[in-house]
Design a protein around this nucleic acid. Structure first.
Lengths: 131, 131
DNA sequence: GGGGAAGTTTACGTTAACGTAAAGTGGCCT
DNA sequence: AGGCCACTTTACGTTAACGTAAACTTCCCC
């Protein structure tokens, strides 16, 4: 069995642990574009990938608008030089941002190391004082 | 010259490129605790560090409440075993979150690589088509 | 054919993180 | 004394990202 090629809204909601309201909201914001069977939404694998990207973005503090940008970076658009240039700029910009986040994470990890060390030390001293 | 040991609100605002309103708001949320001279706020180096931490947190999508937790992790608190245990748990939790963010960043960087590659390819094809 | 279960639309409500405006205080300069 | 900063408090306004509720259709099951 290869990939499923369509998904229901509840199905996606369960898989990614979000509400259907959230998924519809993302469509409202133009981030998802399911087709319809009757009035029921049918999601493509591309929609599923987009949703994944949105949630990944959220974990990094991206706004929905920013995730929208990322999604569009991904869609092969028959573009002219102008647009392609702007696109390359956006990519570079995001790259810089991710770099900064990497630095931030490293500093925080060091902070956590220090905090843990102090906590363990405090615990140790408690142990030693009540024989 | 060692470190400055007190800062005005405007001074901090300029240094970190935030408004004074923002700094006062953080105090309102219990994240900063400046002393007063008259009714004017005077910030300590510890306040300055806390502010730095908050802004770093923001870049990673942390809420002010989460950053508040982090600040408290940093303050040496005469704690009992209960609290120290809880503290260690919180630290571990944050560590897990940072790990996830690292993974997210790596995936996004790869996505950006791919997007850039496609853009450059599209540009190349445009160049070749208009001799 | 009655009743879930899962889908839909419409619309008002909510929270976080500030922005913005108004009105006042204190110091310093000329 | 007048004026201009930089600071203060109070309070209402705003945006993003959904939550929540109501009222409706569709399909399936027994």
């Amino acid at each position: 069995m290869t990939l499923k090629q369509s998904y229901g809204i509840g199905e996606l909601a369960r898989e990614f642990d979000v509400t259907t309201r959230t998924i519809r909201f993302y469509e409202d914001q133009g981030l998802l574009t399911p087709r319809r069977r009757g009035q029921t939404r049918i999601y493509s694998p591309a929609d599923r990938v987009a949703l994944k990207l949105i949630l990944r973005g959220k974990r990094l503090g991206f706004s929905l608008a920013e995730s929208g940008d990322l999604i569009r970076l991904y869609q092969p658009t028959g573009d002219n030089r102008q647009q392609l240039g702007a696109l390359l700029e956006k990519i570079e910009e995001k790259r810089t941002q991710l770099q900064q986040q990497l630095v931030d994470i490293q500093i925080m990890q060091q902070d956590l190391d220090a905090a843990e060390e102090r906590a363990r030390q405090a615990l140790k001293e408690l142990e030693e004082s009540d024989v």
